[in-house]
Design a protein around this nucleic acid. Structure first.
Length: 294
DNA sequence: AACTCTCACAACCGCGAACAG
DNA sequence: ACTGTTCGCGGTTGTGAGAGT
């Protein structure tokens, strides 16, 4: 039998959300909390599909969402987690506080996928058949990566196979009405952006231009896979169990993480933050020959 | 200045899982 | 156990902005 549409397609508005719609949605969620999205359009008068309301809330209006350029550390986390988990964006997002799965997915598709492909193609480039990019070192690297991915997967499986009733991986904050108040910050930001006419920030410009004009391939690898400043990202290790969005890992509700679980996750966490990560990609020795790739 | 191309990101769509009756 | 509904996820598309010609 056919699947019932999530909403009546007739009269449903599509496209970009207006600040007025955002305010209507936020005020509704402040009152009733997120959930029962089916009822949102009728109760708010929004001429939007329930799915659209949920998406708008989870990706843009929800409190605690960080916008703007991804940091080096976030980039590295995404790369490693993607290698480990595949395109499980919600799961990856659970490790990156303040980022949404949609944000990460977009960033991967528009930046990281291309970046990695470029780097991979560059390393495969063997014009004379006797490139310094030896199959030997490449093979070593692949084996090391496979081994460590296996180890990390094992750690993840162990952690996830624990009894959910006693598993408190997350110290996700309990849902409180007051927590929605900070949505006003998101609204304020959206309103600000709505009327913004100023040029993009320096950081953003730097970020977007670097992908086109970068010339230091070695530096690119270092930047991608080095973890030189873990301290600067203390929220990852300190807030490791804190989740930003819904996830397959988070079991939610508790503010008292089980220390056993944290211990069992440590292999994975260590791998994610491991400084050795960059070594996988520095076995390639012909960076200087591939500068034209950028 | 006008046009085209490329990029980045917000939003949509369809599928499957989870849940309720 | 079955059926219908709702939700969440991942892939894909649409579109505006900026860069290039």
């Amino acid at each position: 039998m056919g699947r019932a549409p999530c909403c009546d397609k007739v009269g449903v508005k599509k496209g970009a959300w207006t600040p007025e719609e955002d305010i209507m949605l936020v005020s509704y969620v402040q009152q009733h909390g997120p959930g029962n999205w089916r009822a949102v359009p009728t109760n708010t008068g929004l001429r939007r599909c329930s799915k659209s309301c949920r998406l708008r809330w989870t990706n843009y209006l929800r409190p605690g969402i960080k916008r703007g350029a991804f940091t080096d550390h976030e980039e590295k986390m995404i790369i490693k987690l993607q290698a480990l988990l595949g395109n499980k964006w919600a799961a990856i997002a659970s490790y990156l506080s303040e980022r949404t799965d949609n944000d990460i997915k977009n960033y991967w598709n528009t930046h990281l996928k291309k970046k990695l492909k470029r780097l991979q193609n560059g390393s495969d480039h063997q014009p004379d058949g006797s490139s310094r990019n030896s199959v030997h070192s490449r093979g070593q690297w692949e084996r090391r990566l496979q081994a460590d991915v296996y180890t990390a997967k094992q750690a993840l499986n162990d952690a996830l196979s624990l009894d959910p009733k006693t598993t408190h991986i997350s110290n996700t904050k309990p849902v409180q009405t007051s927590s929605y108040a900070s949505s006003t910050e998101n609204i304020a930001r959206l309103l600000k952006e709505w009327v913004k006419t100023t040029p993009k920030s320096e950081e953003y410009s730097k970020c977007s231009s670097s992908s086109k004009s970068g010339v230091d391939l070695y530096g690119e690898y270092e930047a991608l896979f080095g973890f030189e400043s873990i301290e600067s990202s203390s929220n990852i290790s300190g807030d490791f169990s804190g989740s930003s969005s819904s996830s397959t890992i988070v079991h939610g509700g508790s503010t008292d993480p089980d220390p056993n679980v944290i211990d069992r996750l440590s292999d994975l966490e260590n791998w994610l933050l491991d400084d050795q990560g960059k070594d996988y990609f520095t076995d390639f020795s012909s960076f200087d020959e591939n500068q034209d790739l950028f």
